[in-house]
């Protein structure tokens, strides 16, 4: 077990190093940051000065070494646009993104499981077919279109929900939360629904499939033969067996949710890391882009690592076979 954990840890570090190289080399060569920080009529001598002070004239190797050294200490330099330390900017935005992603995931789990169970147990009812249809639409509409439609409907036409931002937030230590104010909760609804719709679809289909498969197993047949009630069989046995893979997938998908928040945050102007990233891409703000990539990778790698280890704890048979079940 220790060897396995160690092996996994080394692998995770390897991933982070690879990502570091990618992050550095990609963002080093994209766009010209100098034009972003000086105005149109700045003389070339001044531009050269700026270029030099940013270290953009040094050999690439030197730049990379400097970059890795700083990143290891969570120092990503100063944002070109905001002239503030990138780490501080990201930390300030992180609660917004994590809160949105968590809400979206919880919504997706609750509704996904409910709808999945229902459509597995009542396969041929109208409602089950409606759920199937919703799930198909959920994966067939691009996220941004859903977001704009929701804004059009609930903010502009009906005026029920705010169209942008987080509302009022409460600060608890370095964390800020919108969960404790009415306006914060209202602001959370549409972005979470938009972001969670795809995951909900995924979970619903997964639950339905797992349920159907489990219900066919001998184990359930035995349960039936033993004369257990349908309710006990469905929820005590079938659903319980279904939940392990569902929770695993939801956990693994959490990373994707964070990354997909880029689109949702852009549509709803949600002040999270994704919006910061999009703004950085538009402004060729290299330090922020690089830091975002590394931070998100760190979150992914950590989640995957933890899930891997938990999986192995739960099911020792997997120890040798589950290679890289990301």
């Amino acid at each position: 077990m220790l060897a396995f954990t160690l092996h996994r840890a080394i692998q995770a570090i390897g991933v982070m190093i690879a990502v570091g190289i990618i992050a550095f080399s990609m963002f080093r060569f994209a766009g010209d940051p100098v034009n972003q920080i000086v105005s149109l009529d700045t003389p070339p001598a001044e531009r050269a000065e700026v270029r030099k002070s940013l270290g953009l004239d040094d050999p690439v190797i030197v730049q990379f070494a400097r970059y890795v050294g700083n990143a290891a200490q969570f120092k990503f330099g100063v944002s070109y646009q905001f002239r503030q330390p990138v780490t501080a900017l990201l930390m300030e935005r992180m609660p917004a993104t994590l809160e949105l992603a968590t809400c979206a995931t919880v919504l997706a789990m609750v509704f996904g499981i409910l709808m999945g169970v229902y459509s597995a147990l009542r396969r041929d009812t109208l409602l089950a077919k409606a759920f199937q249809a919703i799930s198909l639409i959920g994966i067939s509409l691009p996220t941004f279109l859903i977001g704009i439609l929701l804004i059009y409907l609930f903010s502009v036409t009906l005026g029920w929900l705010p169209s942008f931002g987080r509302g009022d937030v409460v600060r608890i230590g370095w964390w800020t939360t919108g969960l404790l104010t009415v306006s914060g909760l209202k602001a959370l609804i549409m972005p979470s629904v938009t972001l969670g719709l795809f995951q909900m679809t995924l979970i619903m289909r997964l639950v339905r499939a797992e349920m159907l498969e489990v219900l066919r197993t001998d184990y359930i047949r035995f349960a039936r033969a033993r004369g257990l009630t349908t309710r006990a069989i469905h929820f005590g046995h079938a659903l319980k067996n279904t939940l392990v893979p569902v929770i695993t997938v939801a956990g693994l998908q959490f990373g994707s949710v964070i990354a997909f928040a880029i689109i949702t945050e852009t549509v709803f102007q949600w002040p999270g890391m994704g919006l910061l990233f999009v703004q950085a891409v538009q402004n060729v703000d290299i330090p922020i882009m690089a830091a975002y990539l590394l931070m998100v990778s760190l979150i992914f790698v950590t989640i995957n690592f933890v899930v891997d280890i938990l999986y192995t704890v739960v099911d020792p048979r997997l120890r040798s076979t589950i290679s890289g079940a990301a």
Binding site: I151, P162, S163, F164, G165, T266, F268, Q269
Partner: peptide
């Protein structure tokens, strides 16, 4: 700051 055009307009129309 609201960079998205649609969101900016929606914010004004909804009185935010």
């Amino acid at each position: 700051p609201i960079a998205s055009e649609a969101t900016r307009v929606a914010a004004l129309l909804s009185g935010e």
